[in-house]
């Protein structure tokens, strides 16, 4: 009975915070099918480790760790290889248009832009946009607070330059 209650509690917490999982999936995948697959995998990993969630930190904070660990290490989807350069150029646009019809145009642009970034940089950008404190970023990624601060300043600068370039272009 208690395990059923546990499961119900977990599902309700996941339900409340599902947008966060969607954000991670959106950042680390480039198609709707891969997004759904990653969402499922993160949900499974969250549920499997839910016993170890002791409530010391916020549920959402704990979700970043499990979500990012799943996206960065546990889950690898083979990318389909397309040899033609012409085709490759066209694919991201098609993917973005088909992905989320409701999504804000600037966010769609952002996701497309950061698709080429490294997996670690994507994690840093996500944590920056989520407005996380340096300590929490450091703890999530396993880096020092000082380095988290330095990295965040670089990420901010990079995002700013990207926005400026977009306006200029």
């Amino acid at each position: 009975m208690s395990s059923l209650k546990n499961e119900a509690n977990f599902v309700s917490l996941l339900n409340e915070n599902q947008n966060l999982v969607h954000k991670i999936c959106r950042m680390y995948t480039d198609s709707k099918a891969a997004h759904d697959d990653l969402f499922q995998e993160i949900s499974i990993q969250l549920w499997r480790s839910y016993d170890r969630f002791e409530g010391k930190s916020k549920f959402s904070t704990w979700m970043y760790r499990v979500g990012l660990n799943t996206a960065i290490t546990l889950y690898r989807k083979e990318k389909k290889r397309i040899d033609s350069g012409v085709l490759q150029d066209n694919i991201p646009q098609i993917a973005v248009e088909e992905y989320d019809s409701e999504i804000d145009e600037q966010l769609a642009w952002l996701y497309k832009k950061i698709n080429a970034f490294s997996e670690i940089d994507k994690a840093l950008i996500l944590l920056y946009l989520e407005d996380k404190k340096y300590d929490e970023i450091a703890e999530t990624l396993g880096i020092s607070s000082v380095n988290a601060r330095v990295k965040m300043n670089r990420i901010k600068k990079r995002l700013k330059e990207m926005i400026n370039d977009r306006h200029d272009g």
Partner: peptide, 16 residues
């Protein structure tokens, strides 16, 4: 951008 990020909606919303 952060504001838009915080308020973004996704097509798919899973039920419990």
């Amino acid at each position: 951008l952060k504001n838009k990020w915080a308020n973004q909606k996704f097509d798919k919303q899973y039920s419990a």
